[in-house]
Simulated assay, not measured.
Amino acid sequence: MEFSTRIIHEDNIKDGSGAVMSPIILSTTFERGQDGISYPGGFFYSRYDNPNRHSLEQKLAKMENGAGCVSFASGLAAATVVFQSLKTGDHIVLPDDTYFSIRTILDTMFSGFGLSYTLVDMTDLDALRKAIQPNTKLVWTETPSNPLIKVTDLAAVAAIAKEHNCFTVTDNTWATPYYTKPIEFGIDIVLHSTTKYLGGHSDILGGALIFGENNQRYEFIKACQKLGGAVPSPYDCWLLCRSLTTFVARMPIHSNNAMQLAAYLEAHPKIDRVLYPGLTSHPQHEVAARQMTNGFGGMLSILVKGDRATALQLADKLQLFTHATSLGGVESLIEHRKSIEGDLSPTPDNLLRISAGIEDVKDLINDFEQALLSI
């Protein structure tokens, strides 16, 4: 079956009632068999596994063409477990504009664990090679990046990492498996904040790791999920599976709206620069065109002509775009990232990050037109 058909029809829960939609199994515990040892239903305690979580993980693994999936209560919980799989003295290579909370996790939660990291421009492959040290174990990628919209050549990065016996993680939250499947380019682990496009309605918190193969690291992280307990609730898993049924319908609209909005803003005299991989002006447009299928995603960033105050004023004047954090919902959002990330952030003061929703694009452009007239 094709991608969209499989999401809707495969790995659903059948409970014998004839229900068309999968039920929510809220029970935290499950009955043993007559022998007092086995669990005929395959489940015994909801922290270890649950029918709704099992269904979700099966779906997500197939969407990324992976061998297995481990889901978590948030995207950062998923990222944290990856770092827990490292050992004292290990070194990590991170993108220089990685999602700022990744650096915060390493600087705070892991400050006493002997991990170190180097920031590098992942679009510069020579810089990546120079950043790898004898104790480097992990190369972390994020494409497109948040919020500077850099596009990483995943196949090239994966090849360099393998030369140095490093494993790779790609945060695929923005591209999603609709546009990019990193495992197909040699990436070992794919990370998702399922809060974003996979959830798609700004009402679910979750995260997931999808593995190219079920190896020792997969087993360790699966054990961390069970023992650490940072698992998504059955209801959140059910809600996310519900959202996945419209995933293929939503994603083209996000991408088409972002493309048209980017083209409009690039031509506007009050906008200094538009960062969107679908524009030929984007520095990695050729990489994006080779690596992203079905479109270039729903995320773009703009650099407003002016300073921080001008950017904040523009965000405030918009009426359809809500000035709020997060992304990937059906509604359009805009955010001044520097004020969220703080003084250590490399994000420019005049940058606004835009999550294009699935409203009519004419209304989105008209909203920007009226807002730009007032600044």
Rank of each mutant, 00 (worst) to 15 (best):
N146S: 10
P177F: 08
K181D: 04
A158I: 03
K137C: 00
V330D: 04
K130N: 09
A73W: 03
L198F: 07
C224D: 01
M251A: 12
V330N: 08
T310Q: 06
S116L: 06
F72K: 05
T108S: 14
K362H: 04
A158R: 06
P348S: 02
E213Q: 15
W140H: 09
A79K: 11
K196V: 02
E213I: 09
V361G: 06
T293Q: 14
D153W: 07
T143Y: 05
I13L: 13
L303A: 04
R103Y: 01
Q291V: 03
E286V: 07
S46N: 10
V157P: 06
H91K: 10
C224W: 00
G75M: 07
I210E: 06
A67S: 14
R32W: 00
T136N: 06
A73I: 10
D363N: 15
R273T: 12
I354F: 01
V139R: 07
L275M: 15
V248T: 15
L154P: 02
H9M: 06
T123Q: 07
N165A: 13
K317G: 03
T293K: 15
A156R: 09
E335T: 14
F83I: 10
E10I: 01
D236K: 10
N50Q: 13
A249W: 08
C224Q: 13
Y178R: 01
L205Q: 11
A161K: 08
P23D: 10
T88E: 15
T152S: 12
F113T: 05
W174R: 15
I8A: 14
N165I: 02
S374N: 12
G68T: 05
T180I: 13
N172A: 13
R103H: 05
T325G: 14
D126Q: 13
Y117I: 07
W174D: 09
K305A: 12
P283N: 11
H282M: 07
G16R: 00
A309M: 06
E2K: 13
D349Q: 11
P177N: 08
I334Q: 05
L198A: 08
K338Y: 03
D15P: 02
Q133V: 05
G329V: 01
M109E: 10
N256P: 00
E213D: 05
L128E: 04
S243R: 12
S4D: 11
I334H: 03
L60T: 03
I25Y: 12
G357L: 03
G114W: 05
P232D: 03
H192P: 01
L314G: 05
D307S: 07
K150V: 06
V157E: 09
I160K: 06
L303I: 03
E219F: 01
D349Y: 04
W174P: 00
L265V: 07
A309S: 12
M21R: 14
C241N: 14
M251K: 11
R6V: 11
L154F: 02
L265Q: 02
I132P: 01
N257K: 07
L86S: 05
I375W: 01
S74E: 08
P182R: 07
P269H: 08
E331F: 04
L148Q: 11
Q84G: 12
L209G: 11
G114F: 03
K62P: 00
P23V: 05
S355I: 00
L239K: 14
G207T: 04
F30S: 10
Y39G: 05
